[in-house]
């Protein structure tokens, strides 16, 4: 998303129309990222709402308007991690019930693999999942993620590595089960 620097500067100086334009332009991107971190519709919506309000309140503190997009990632990650902490305390888990089309036999393995990976993503800690989402979904380089999370560069690399290893292990374990159960390759 390319954000107009002038629009950001106007919003920083209290122009509510400019802010609302920015908020509407950013909301979907933030929501999709938030949902992939907190994995819950309600909590993702809460995180985005808090982000949009904080965006207005804190905009004057943004030093470089060109960094608006990365700055909003910082905000949304902050609220996502807060939401995740809250979720742990209350023990709320989202159960997704979806209607699916009957899968073709040759699609079983692929769908199963994706499902396994999705479950492994859910099992990651919020911190590890955040790094995975920012890197593999939002497409941010590690150096930028390090700044967004305010952790050392190596820590981001380490979290990404451990998360990737856990995800790979989940798939490989699944494959081993598949072989022993005689599933098709």
């Amino acid at each position: 998303m390319l954000v107009d620097r002038a629009l950001v500067e106007q919003a920083q100086h209290g122009d509510r129309d400019a802010y609302e334009a920015l908020a509407r332009a950013s909301a979907r991107r933030l929501y999709l990222t938030a949902h992939r971190i907190v994995r819950d519709v309600d909590r993702a919506e809460d995180a985005v709402q808090q982000t949009l309000v904080a965006m207005w309140r804190e905009l004057p503190s943004l030093r470089d308007p060109d960094r608006f997009e990365a700055w909003t990632y910082r905000l949304v990650v902050r609220f996502c991690l807060e939401e995740s902490r809250r979720a742990r305390r209350t023990g709320v888990r989202e159960i997704r019930i979806e209607e699916t089309e009957p899968a073709r036999p040759d699609a079983f393995a692929a769908a199963d693999l994706r499902d396994q990976l999705d479950r492994a993503l859910a099992a990651l800690s919020p911190q590890h999942r955040t790094v995975v989402v920012l890197h593999h979904y939002a497409g941010l380089p590690l150096a930028e993620i390090a700044e967004i999370l305010d952790v050392p560069y190596g820590t981001v690399g380490s979290r990404l590595h451990h998360a990737t290893r856990a995800l790979r292990a989940a798939i490989e374990a699944h494959e081993r089960v598949g072989i022993s159960e005689g599933q098709p390759a």
Partner: peptide, 10 residues
């Protein structure tokens, strides 16, 4: 998987 998981609209 990340692209496909979750809602696509807000």
């Amino acid at each position: 998987v990340l692209q496909a998981s979750g809602p696509q609209t807000l």
